[in-house]
Amino acid sequence: MANVRVQYFGSIRAAAGTPEEETARGENATVFQLLLELADAYGKAFRGEILDESGERLRDDVTLTVNGAIINHSAAYEMRLRPGDLLALFPIFPGGG
């Protein structure tokens, strides 16, 4: 059975130390649960990049896509990933530049 693929971009990639990985962690988990597990695995910098100060909610300035489609953060707390799904995490830069 294929695992879930996760792609990281920008500072999230730097914190994870890898641009992409296949993981079995996502099996039957919600998107949010998977992110919590990844945060545990990658540590403080990664956690700070995707979760807010409380550690219990996603940061507003993060884009999540599943199979290329941007998902609402509230969906992340419920959506379950299927084998072969591609989850991608991106920081958003307010203020352009």
Binding site: F9, A45, A88
Partner: peptide, 19 residues
């Protein structure tokens, strides 16, 4: 603000490309 101090806004190149 870590994202600005590390790679900075140039990170948007691959981000926007993927999006």
């Amino acid at each position: 603000t870590a994202k600005y101090r590390t790679m900075g806004t140039p990170a948007n190149m691959l981000i926007h490309n993927a999006q």
